[in-house]
Amino acid sequence: MPAMSRIALTLGLALGASAAKNSIVAPTGAEKLTVGLLGDYGWTGWQPLPLDFCNNALPKLQADGVTIPRDLQNDCDPGDRAAISNATIEETRTANYIEKVCLQKNCSAFVSVGDNFYDSGVDFTSEGIQRFYEGWANMYVGKAFDGKPWYQALGNHDIVAGKAGVDFQTRIAPLMEDRWYFGNDNLPYYTYDLKGSNWTATFAVVDSDCFINKYQQSTSVYNTDYVIECHQTTQTQVEFLRKAFAESTATWKILQIHHGFISSSTNYTELAPLMDIVRENNAVVINGHDHCMAHYQFNGTNFVLTGGAGYAEAGDCNYGVPLGPFTKWLGADAQQAANGFVTLDISYNALHFEYYARDMQLKGADYYPVANEMKPSYSFDVTQHATKA
């Protein structure tokens, strides 16, 4: 039985005759479908390089002109080294928390905004395969996850391994695990539809890494063969998005990317060509990168930040300064950011977003108190349908 057919059977979803291979069709008569939105989660299984190598050997090698692979440079990052212990604990607890909420809400699928594997991605090696199972396939298990498709995207940590890492996630991983989905063309950008009895939602996935100018600097750990090449052809992805949305007559249109065009830390203005298309289609943007959750509105567009599923970092989200008027809700303060994820209930009448923040008790302290973590800390609706061509 084909992989997607097995998934559909497990979910109890009936695939219509006209549905594309990469579509989920809700049961006949169903009016609502719930999906989990998450990102920036893949810490488990990462082993930082020995401190002696990073502090002593690496500077000597660099001084002697030895070319240091990007992944080795990144695996010596002092901030990530310091975070790994708490990050692994928080990812595991948040995965368990997501399962509890999704059992309650009956999530039918999961939508990822990237950074699937810290610190330097994975590739088709023994270590990469081990990380894939430890950090994802064996992490997100249980009744809420079993058989549920994950619509994946790439983040900056996923591209550190270059073309080999991108090929693993877009081509190899879907063959290893039925739930891991990356389109039908082995590309880092693709589109898929979710369908209900009287509505359709078109999701377009774009690799925002290719648009970021500072990743083209030779000193950047993200300046790999892959990102150098795809930066020269960003117009390909712009036209892909334009065509995907123009040809869609869906009730809702959603752009799924990693970096935030609007943020509480860094606004990636290079993504403006994509945002023009989003506005023309009255679409919604789902992104990660900042390690927290937030809702922004800018120029009539809703931006859903879902990046709290792994290691939450207040420094990515709130520097203790007044937030701009575009910030509608931020799951962070100057001291801590919330772990959690976002659910999306799709129906004909609305896209209903609920932000679930986990009560973060760690080592005897409550780092992000939540009165009732099984209820959303924030929610909002989008009620104006997408523009149709």
Rank of each mutant, 00 (worst) to 15 (best):
Y97G: 01
L58D: 04
D75A: 08
C107I: 12
V35L: 10
R93Y: 09
C107N: 12
N22T: 13
E127D: 14
N86I: 08
F110V: 11
L49S: 07
N74G: 03
Q130S: 09
A57F: 07
G128W: 08
L37R: 08
G29H: 12
G121K: 02
N106D: 15
S112F: 08
P27D: 12
T44M: 06
V35Q: 08
L38K: 05
A30M: 14
L37P: 03
G36M: 12
A26R: 12
I129V: 15
T28A: 15
S85R: 09
I24L: 15
A57C: 04
S120E: 05
G36Q: 10
I129K: 11
T94I: 01
S112D: 15
D115C: 06
V122K: 01
Y118L: 01
D75F: 04
V25G: 13
A87Y: 01
G65D: 03
D64Y: 08
D40N: 10
I89F: 08
C76G: 07
N106I: 12
Y97R: 06
P50F: 05
T88M: 07
V113Q: 02
N116A: 07
I89P: 03
F132L: 07
N74D: 05
K21L: 12
L33P: 12
L103H: 11
T125Y: 10
S126G: 14
D115M: 07
A82N: 02
G128L: 09
N96L: 07
E31L: 14
G39Y: 08
A95C: 14
K60P: 09
S85P: 00
D64K: 07
E127L: 10
Q104F: 08
Y97V: 01
A87S: 02
I89E: 05
T28D: 15
G114D: 04
A63V: 09
N86A: 14
G42E: 05
G121D: 02
W46T: 01
V113Y: 07
R81Q: 03
N56I: 13
D77S: 13
C76P: 03
V122N: 00
R81G: 01
Y118V: 00
F117E: 01
Q47H: 11
L37V: 09
N86Y: 05
D75K: 05
S126L: 12
W46K: 00
G114V: 04
P27I: 13
L58W: 00
N55A: 12
G128V: 09
P48K: 03
N106M: 13
I84Y: 02
G42Y: 04
Y97M: 00
D71H: 04
S85N: 10
D123Y: 12
C102M: 13
C76Y: 03
F53R: 03
T125C: 11
C76I: 02
I129N: 10
K60M: 09
C102L: 13
T94R: 00
L37S: 11
Q47A: 12
P50L: 02
F117M: 10
S126N: 15
F132S: 09
E90P: 01
L49R: 01
D40A: 02
D77F: 04
Y97L: 08
